Amino acid sequence: MGKHVNLVKLCVGAEKVEDLTAWQNMRMGQTGLPHPRHITRMWPKREAELIAGGSLYWVFKGLILARQRILRLEEVIGQDGIRRCALVLDHQVVLTENQPRRAFQGWRYLSAEDAPRDLKSDGTSDKDTLPAELASALAEIGIR
Rank of each mutant, 00 (worst) to 15 (best):
L33W: 12
R117Q: 14
K3E: 10
Q30T: 11
D90P: 03
D126W: 14
I70T: 01
R102S: 13
R67T: 01
V5C: 00
L56T: 02
R117Y: 12
Q92S: 11
I51K: 12
A66S: 15
A52I: 00
T96W: 01
D128F: 15
T96M: 09
T129V: 15
A22Q: 12
A137I: 05
V76W: 12
G123K: 11
F104G: 11
I77T: 15
Q79V: 03
D128N: 08
A137V: 03
A103F: 08
I141K: 09
G32M: 06
G53I: 04
F104N: 11
S136M: 13
L73G: 03
K16Y: 00
L33V: 12
K127F: 14
V93F: 06
R101T: 00
A14W: 15
H4M: 05
A137T: 02
A48E: 12
Q24S: 05
E47R: 13
A135W: 06
E47W: 04
W23H: 14
E133F: 08
L87Q: 01
N6W: 05
R144T: 12
A139L: 05
I51G: 03
L10S: 01
G106E: 09
C11R: 09
Q99N: 04
L73V: 05
L134G: 00
M28K: 13
V93N: 06
E133W: 09
R67C: 10
L50N: 06
V76S: 02
D122S: 07
P116V: 05
V94G: 07
L10G: 01
S121L: 13
R101Q: 08
H38I: 00
L95Q: 13
G29Y: 06
L7G: 07
V8L: 01
V93A: 11
Q105I: 09
G81T: 13
T96Q: 03
G142T: 04
W107Y: 15
N98H: 09
E140G: 05
L71Q: 10
R41S: 14
G54W: 00
K16R: 15
D118S: 14
A86P: 13
